[in-house]
Amino acid sequence: MYSLNVNGVSHSVNVDGSTPLLWVLRDVLGLTGTKYGCGIEVCGACTVLVNGQPEKSCDMDTSEAAGKTIVTIEGLSANRSHPAQQAWIAHQVPQCGYCQSGMIMACAGAMQAGHHGNEILSEMNNICVCGTYARIKDAVQGL
């Protein structure tokens, strides 16, 4: 049994400690906004904030996440009010949208670390197969 603090709510989860955080979020807590992409920390679709840092949840053990503050896309803001979410809408960034939870969380993490504009871009290396990069570049300019 592990205690996970996700989006400000404490959850007790009865899983093997080696279960990746991604799958606890998705299959146990029902927070499906965080996506499975590669399972090997390469694509970034599963990015969440752990103690404010962007982390790829597909390769983070639940035992390691326990006791830390976890924020997923569902908990980033109420009503899509985070500036990154607003910028993503204003610039009509998503196409299929599948990678965008991870993209936005990577952006939010970089912002939380005090980065702005192009500095945020240098912190983002997630994969988007639709190729929304041009619009992400535009979207972060005002952040």
Binding site: R26, L31, T32, G33, T34, K35, Y36, T72, I73, E74, L76, S77, R80, Q85, W88, I89, Q92, V93, P94, G97, Y98, Q100, S101, I104
Partner: peptide, 19 residues
């Protein structure tokens, strides 16, 4: 015009098959 599917794709609420 803004696309109808975009808001749900920035807050994790869009449901894909895997969800």
């Amino acid at each position: 015009v803004p696309r109808v599917d975009i808001p749900s794709k920035v807050d994790g609420s869009a449901k894909y098959g895997i969800d």
